[in-house]
Every structure is written in C-alpha cells, then in structure tokens.
Amino acid sequence: MPRRSLSPEEQALWAALTRSVKPIRAAARMPAPAVVPIKPVEPKRLTPSSARPFVAPPARSPAAILDSGWERRIRGGNLVPDMTIDLHGHTLSSAHVRLGQAIALGLAQGARILLVITGKPPKSAAFDSHSRRGAIRGEIGHWLETGSYADRIASVRAAHPRHGGDGALYVILRRSR
C-alpha cells in the first residue's frame, strides 16, 4: 500500500507534537557507540551435581468421583447450577470460544457448578455408530482436559435428567485459591 504525504495541517500538528515531546533519558539522544567486537564466551560445562532434570509439577485433572455429599447431590438432581451455558447452534470453534469465556466468567464470579448444555444427538443417529454423539458433545471433554482452565476443574459429570440428562454436563470448578 503506497504511503500518502501529510497535508499542511497534518505537518503543522506533527511539528508541534514533536516539539512538545521530551526524551525520558538524555542518553536516548546520543548516537550509538562504535561497534566493539565481542569476544566469544565459552559455554558453561555442567557437572553432574549442577545438572538437574526438569520435573514438571503434577497436573491436576478432573476427578472421576467426588466425595459422597457431591455424589448424592448429583444422583438426586439436587445441584443448583451457578451458571448455565447453552452451546446450541454454535459451530465447533464458536462453542469452544464460548465455553472458555463462560468458564473464565464463572471463575471470576466464584461459581462452583456450571451447567453446559451441548444438546442431544438426533434420534435418527442412534443406529449410526459414527454419529452417536453430537459434534460439540464429542469434543467438549477434550476441550476441558486441554484448555487453559483444566487445572481449575474439579470434575465433569453427566447432568441429571432435570437439567438435560444426556444433552448436558455439570462442570464442577475447584474452590478459589
């Protein structure tokens, strides 16, 4: 794209602006020093005592089973979601973004239980083994395990029929740190 030249008004404004700006350091106006050759630095040799392998901290993954109180509330449908996220009508990419935004908002608001509605697959797909699950439902587990908030998720569970059953999930967040 070719650059355009400044109009006389723009040139006057630019000149006034440059006159009003003061450098942070006087050294910033000094010319760069002459190039001085740098002598090569010999790399440090690691001794067995100084070489320690990197050990990553253990990742916290969602638990398959929570304590008995949580389990009883989940089975009985006695959970009251703090937030509900409906992913109906979203593409995979927009659903993924929406899920991340909702988890971030839930964490910011101190929510513990998110109800994520993915939708049930069509009944005609029940006999087709390749289409048993909807696209969003098929990907959501991966998104939750590998997402930036994976360590903040305590558990992911199928929702009670009162909250959508097979078409929804409870995402139970860990307590704030």
Score class of each variant (00 low, 15 high):
residue 1 M to A: 14
residue 2 P to H: 14
residue 2 P to S: 15
residue 2 P to W: 11
residue 3 R to W: 00
residue 4 R to H: 12
residue 4 R to Q: 13
residue 11 Q to H: 02
residue 11 Q to S: 11
residue 11 Q to N: 08
residue 12 A to G: 02
residue 14 W to T: 06
residue 14 W to A: 14
residue 16 A to N: 12
residue 17 L to E: 10
residue 17 L to V: 07
residue 18 T to I: 09
residue 19 R to Q: 15
residue 19 R to Y: 05
residue 20 S to F: 02
residue 21 V to S: 04
residue 23 P to R: 13
residue 23 P to F: 09
residue 24 I to N: 08
residue 25 R to K: 11
residue 25 R to H: 12
residue 25 R to Y: 11
residue 26 A to N: 09
residue 28 A to F: 00
residue 28 A to V: 03
residue 28 A to W: 10
residue 30 M to P: 00
residue 30 M to T: 11
residue 30 M to V: 09
residue 32 A to F: 08
residue 32 A to D: 11
residue 33 P to F: 07
residue 35 V to T: 12
residue 36 V to E: 15
residue 37 P to E: 15
residue 38 I to L: 13
residue 38 I to E: 13
residue 41 V to K: 14
residue 44 K to M: 08
residue 44 K to C: 06
residue 45 R to E: 10
residue 47 T to P: 00
residue 48 P to K: 08
residue 48 P to Q: 10
residue 51 A to W: 04
residue 53 P to C: 01
residue 53 P to F: 00
residue 56 A to W: 06
residue 60 R to N: 08
residue 60 R to I: 10
residue 62 P to A: 12
residue 64 A to N: 00
residue 65 I to V: 14
residue 65 I to Y: 12
residue 66 L to Q: 06
residue 67 D to K: 01
residue 67 D to H: 10
residue 70 W to E: 04
residue 74 I to P: 00
residue 74 I to L: 15
residue 76 G to R: 14
residue 76 G to W: 03
residue 77 G to M: 07
residue 77 G to R: 04
residue 78 N to F: 06
residue 78 N to S: 10
residue 79 L to A: 07
residue 82 D to L: 01
residue 83 M to D: 12
residue 87 L to H: 01
residue 93 S to V: 08
residue 94 S to P: 03
residue 95 A to V: 02
residue 97 V to N: 11
residue 100 G to S: 12
residue 100 G to R: 08
residue 106 G to Y: 03
residue 107 L to F: 01
residue 107 L to A: 06
residue 109 Q to E: 14
residue 111 A to F: 03
residue 112 R to L: 09
residue 113 I to D: 05
residue 115 L to D: 03
residue 116 V to E: 04
residue 116 V to M: 09
residue 119 G to A: 08
residue 120 K to V: 05
residue 120 K to C: 01
residue 120 K to L: 00
residue 121 P to N: 15
residue 121 P to K: 07
residue 123 K to A: 12
residue 125 A to R: 04
residue 128 D to P: 01
residue 129 S to D: 12
residue 130 H to P: 05
residue 132 R to C: 02
residue 134 G to K: 03
residue 135 A to P: 06
residue 136 I to V: 15
residue 136 I to E: 04
residue 137 R to G: 15
residue 144 L to N: 03
residue 146 T to N: 13
residue 151 D to S: 13
residue 152 R to I: 00
residue 152 R to F: 10
residue 153 I to A: 03
residue 155 S to T: 10
residue 156 V to F: 03
residue 157 R to V: 00
residue 157 R to Q: 15
residue 160 H to A: 04
residue 162 R to W: 05
residue 162 R to I: 14
residue 162 R to H: 07
residue 164 G to R: 04
residue 165 G to E: 07
residue 165 G to Y: 07
residue 166 D to K: 07
residue 168 A to D: 04
residue 169 L to D: 03
residue 172 I to M: 05
residue 175 R to T: 12
residue 175 R to C: 00
residue 177 R to A: 13
residue 177 R to S: 13
